[in-house]
Design a protein around this nucleic acid. Structure first.
Lengths: 233, 233
DNA sequence: ACCTGAACACCGTTCAAGT
DNA sequence: ACCTGAACACCGTTCAAGT
């Protein structure tokens, strides 16, 4: 007699099945609900059985990151290094957006994984193929930083605005006393309806591409100028 | 008879003392060693006593962030918005570097605190005083993102290089098989000693200022061009 | 009314006992 | 030799019992 939810484990456990089930469980219930114990229960096995396929929880999270990175898909060529890099980073963004927990888990990894190393290597290759020096490429990668994963480290998550517009106005008036500038840029554009994205909440995609293009344009300018760290450090 | 390490609590507990002791404990033992239980022991009180001064552990971490933000010091005027913003962000960086755990805790906060709101407000005020529109300032703040806290989200922490140069060379040769571009930019500059910062490990300060200036220069350029999101969104 | 020890509901991981 | 249940050493927080 077994207590397994699916009435007996038809599919034998494997590292791949452990990782995919972990990804699905985190997608469905959130990363906080993912524990070695809850994952084992989901798979109909005893917690200790997982340790046959992943050394510990850290390695489980590493493996989950690589599952997501594997969903990015191959580079699509593109014309010129800037479009190639831009397209690849936006593709990465889409893969990570499918898994709400992924950005936070990628950030928390204490070291690289085969998947993240491969992703970085292909991105660096695009810069180099475009003729950028190893020196400039190095600093460009640092400048992009976490943005190569397709997400920005937010200043802080926007508090969910109250549904009641009267309550919202009162909150803003109160906040404006202490933080006038924050309230100003958070509400600017609401008065003049000119298509500005300011005011109606923030458009994540716009903010991401704004910053990405600011960086890529700056890198392109330095490349054209023959920039080297030796002449500026 | 008491078991308190300091032979009796001379100083009564207060929110301030709880927060400062938590900061000191995290500085000394690392953020992982900071638990409600370990903090209570450090203060010579029972864990429950802490809940008189902080609602829960989340609020404790919020308070610790504000202690660090309080160490930044006032803005130093400066000439022009760009220098003012730049100086303020570098001052923030120095405050956070004094507390190795701070960057990670700031990142993990699910919402703003009075201290972080005040810091952002003063930064936004510098852009506005320099004549930038609320619109451009809004996007500039998003583009700076987590960098306003003085740290960059790293691609991943560099693995500690082996002390033995022979071992290091072997590791690099092995890595180069799978990740040739990563190894190239990680070792470029080692051959030609021209003052390039590439090769001898990464200079965090250089990388941070490189990215910060790339962004600030780009923002300055857009400001001069009279950029508005209405004409580009 | 106040304070606090024990308890609750977890966690990742170890380890020895059972098959 | 293999598998696994119980146990270990924690955690944040609740709650009722004691003063």
């Amino acid at each position: 007699m077994t207590r397994q939810a699916d009435g007996g484990r038809r599919t034998p456990l494997s590292r791949d099945r452990v990782l995919r089930t972990a990804v699905a469980l985190a997608d469905r219930s959130g990363i906080d609900a993912l524990s070695m114990r809850s994952l084992a229960q989901e798979l109909g096995v005893v917690p200790m059985a997982l340790y046959k396929h992943v050394a510990n929880k850290e390695q489980l999270l590493d493996g989950m990151v690589d599952v997501v990175v594997g969903e990015i898909g191959p580079p699509d060529g593109g014309d010129g290094w800037k479009d190639a890099v831009r397209g690849r980073i936006l593709a990465t963004r889409h893969a990570l957006l499918r898994h709400p927990w992924a950005a936070r888990v990628v950030e928390s990894r204490p070291g690289p994984t085969p998947g993240t190393l491969g992703h970085l290597d292909s991105l660096i290759g695009m810069f180099r193929a475009g003729g950028l020096s190893a020196d400039l490429t190095h600093h460009a990668m640092h400048a992009l930083g976490g943005r190569v994963w397709g997400f920005t480290q937010e200043l802080f998550p926007a508090p969910p605005p109250s549904a009641d517009p009267e309550v919202r106005a009162a909150v803003l008036r109160e906040a404006a006393v202490h933080y006038p500038y924050i309230v100003e840029i958070a509400t600017a554009g609401a008065a003049h309806d000119d298509g500005s994205v300011v005011g109606g909440g923030c458009d994540d995609r716009f903010e991401f591409e704004f910053a990405l293009d600011l960086l890529l344009d700056g890198i392109e300018r330095l490349h054209r100028q023959g920039w080297s760290s030796a002449r500026h450090g």
